[in-house]
Amino acid sequence: MTAAADWDPSTYLRFAGERARPFADLLGRVGAVDPRVVVDLGCGDGSMTAALHRRWPRARVIGVDSSASMLAAAAEHAVPGHLTFVAGDVRDWRPEEPVDAIVSNAVLHWVPGHAALVTRWAADLTPNGWLALQVPGNQAAPTHALLAELTSSPRWAHQLDGPDDVLDRAAVLDPVGYLDLLTGAGLSADVWETTYLHVLTGEDPVLRWVTGTVLRPVLARLPDGDAAALTAEYAAALRASYPARPDGTTVLPFRRVFAVGHRLSAA
């Protein structure tokens, strides 16, 4: 990841409450009682990794992320000997020893073709280990469809080399796909999907939401003037697709897919 495309923790965390809820829902289905090693792959600013430490205070919890700015923010949550953060790409990460619980929250949609990666992670689990992942399943939503259409248009395609990978509808499997993936890796599987209805306030709230996620890598490839022009065009399209309600709020439906795998201990 280039510095220009690096994550901005303050922008991403504008909607911290809404983004934290899926993590809590995911973790609620993980039955690990007293794990020794827990890894959060794509830990971001570390606030949710800290929740893993609070749940399992005796565990050694490790957060892994490739963003220098996110890791700098995560350092504030570190607890020597118990909660640490390291730089690394989730695509290349390998544990030094078998892991009792692997968590990956809102990361794998940035990694097209991640099925093989999930299978490898499953193999890194201890007996009775857990693997939990959550991915946005909204690639067909107007937020993504409008941006894909815009970046593929004659006005922008020559500068952007086509849409970003995260706009690819095939980047995320459907729930049955994750069920098959986890069971094929030898895990018992609990897979589901949820569509959250986020009630947003303020001016252009959907634009503010995507500025911290899907729009970020697109704008990073444009000079400031062009980035502003594309943003204005995109904002107008978003306002039409997500109109404000009479009370001034805007509803953003957001679908997410959850998958929890458990490696059962041998009898």
Rank of each mutant, 00 (worst) to 15 (best):
A5R: 14
A5W: 13
P9T: 09
G17R: 14
V30G: 02
V30M: 08
G31I: 09
V33Y: 00
P35R: 00
R36Q: 12
G42Q: 01
R60D: 07
R60G: 10
V64E: 00
E76S: 15
E76H: 15
A78K: 03
F85G: 03
R91G: 06
I102K: 03
V103M: 03
V111W: 00
A116I: 00
A116P: 12
W121N: 05
D124H: 15
W130P: 06
L131S: 09
G137P: 12
A140F: 09
H144Y: 08
A148V: 03
L150V: 04
S152G: 06
S152T: 10
D165N: 03
D165T: 10
R169L: 14
V172W: 04
L187P: 05
S188P: 00
D190H: 13
D190N: 14
L197D: 11
E203M: 15
V210L: 05
T211Q: 15
R216L: 12
R216E: 15
R216Y: 12
D226Q: 13
A229G: 06
A232S: 15
A236R: 10
L238M: 05
R239T: 04
R239V: 09
A240Y: 04
A244E: 05
P246R: 11
D247I: 10
L252Y: 02
L252P: 01
L252M: 05
S265T: 10
A267H: 00
